[in-house]
Design a protein around this nucleic acid. Structure first.
Lengths: 261, 261
DNA sequence: GCATCATTCAAACGGGCGTTTGAATCGGCT
DNA sequence: AGCCGATTCAAACGCCCGTTTGAATGATGC
């Protein structure tokens, strides 16, 4: 019996790792990496549940059993796909914020710069095309709304530090916004970011005109930052929506309420 | 042989429909409706692909074969779940916008009111608890990021009219924003709305404090509208992000770029 | 050359899936 | 009562899934 009990994966000597990840060669990637890359794109196209190991291994030109040999299970493969990119990304975000705060020297940061610290590191990941960074960014956008148990148990731990640090920074930069509103606006921020990075097709298919630069993450981010910055600082007044709610409750002109027709 | 070829579903006499949807009784819902309701919650919990008809029919206390008898296939069931709520919702949105534009009498609407026309009808659906409106709203938020072929082929048709109308209204209300930017901001809007309505758990699990009122759609929307309104009207200047990009490209302090460590 | 061990491979296993079938049951009609 | 079409039901079908197995392969060190 080999060590297929898979306590922590197969051997992977340092020589193996170097020859595969090695910067120059590009001869034919490691089986592990081939699987990871194929898994990223298949997961992106079909979601986690509908992606079969047979599809993934076929696209990676690798034997079916290789997944269980190298990763242990399908779920472990999913986890690896994310850990490969997400850890570095979130550490870079925190490091970016560290640098901004050090430079600010105790003064409050502008909301815009805080948001930059959130999105600019994603640019780095996106440029890392060799490692499939762009594909991963889109996959990440999708992962947030994955209802399955994998992400439910996984993402919170990956994001906790980032959320804590950015919430603190934003609360300091925007003292006039109550904590509850701030948390909600961060939630909306995540939603818009998630959509933007997933390059969600819904709008693209609908839109009456072409959206240019949808595959250029820099262009997306350049448009995303002003939107988020403005939204984050928006007025807190409940504004006429209260009136609208009231008018909707008793269907004044009957236009809204007539929906069972 | 019965008419199980399922060209357009089984009999469903008017008497049947009335007795099931009937306002008072609530004795024990129609088999069809029981399946639809169970499907909504199961889809919400596990996604479309991972929800088995056996799980759904068990929760609905209905025979497994009932799904294929009443709907024809799993995919057709998914379609019905959405058509039951989404059509009325989007028609109400357009009707709301019609009313606003009629009242404005040719003058431009404020962006805030246009956004109200988008989100206020969702309140109506949410209040329609008997038909599972609240559950549906959360399911709808998730459906947008579903990568499967069902939604890809289905949602665009359901949303085309809404997007066309609202894009036109917003372009008229915000003439200073170029079309491309406007489309992108609508994209971000959809993302934030989708997240807000899905009550996406990511942030809730992460948050360092409780989020109150997460299940109260009115509270969510009251916070969402100012955010979207402000974001939509945000400055168009590329602003310091350009500088940040440059500094990220050649890792000035080395903090951001160090990510392979 | 040979032993050793990591890796690859084809084949199979058991189980859950969507769907189909044909008989049993129900309800309204004459 | 007796019929008939609509609905429910238990059982099965064939398929694809994740995983396991045990032998074949290939490289490494002696």
């Amino acid at each position: 019996m080999n060590q297929r009990l898979h306590v922590s994966g197969p051997k992977r000597t340092e020589a193996t790792v170097l020859s595969s990840h090695g910067q120059g060669g590009r001869a034919q990637a490691d089986t592990r990496t081939r699987i990871l890359r194929a898994a990223e794109t298949v997961f992106l196209e079909r979601g986690f549940a509908s992606s079969s190991l047979r599809t993934i291994t076929a696209r990676a030109r690798v034997n079916l059993a290789a997944v269980n040999y190298h990763f242990g299970s399908k779920e472990a493969l999913i986890r690896e796909v994310f850990e490969r990119h997400l850890g570095p990304l979130n550490r870079a975000r925190i490091a970016y914020l560290d640098r901004l705060e050090a430079e600010a020297n105790g003064r409050a940061l502008s909301p815009e710069r805080i948001i930059e610290a959130m999105v600019a590191p994603a640019l780095q990941v996106n440029r890392d095309a060799l490692k499939g960074g762009a594909v991963f960014l889109r996959l990440l956008g999708r992962a947030f709304s994955e209802p399955g148990p994998y992400m439910r148990a996984f993402l919170p731990g990956q994001y906790r530090d980032v959320v804590v640090r950015f919430k603190r920074a934003l609360a300091y930069a925007l003292p006039q916004i109550p904590e509850q509103d701030l948390v909600w606006r961060m939630h909306f921020m995540f939603g818009a970011m998630s959509y933007a990075m997933a390059g969600n097709d819904a709008l693209r298919l609908i839109a009456t005109c072409q959206i240019d630069g949808a595959d250029d993450a820099e262009a997306v981010i350049r448009r995303l930052v002003p939107f988020l910055t403005a939204g984050l600082q928006g007025s807190l007044a409940p504004s006429p929506l209260t009136a609208v709610q009231a008018s909707a409750r008793r269907p004044r002109s009957g236009v809204v309420a007539r929906k069972a027709a």
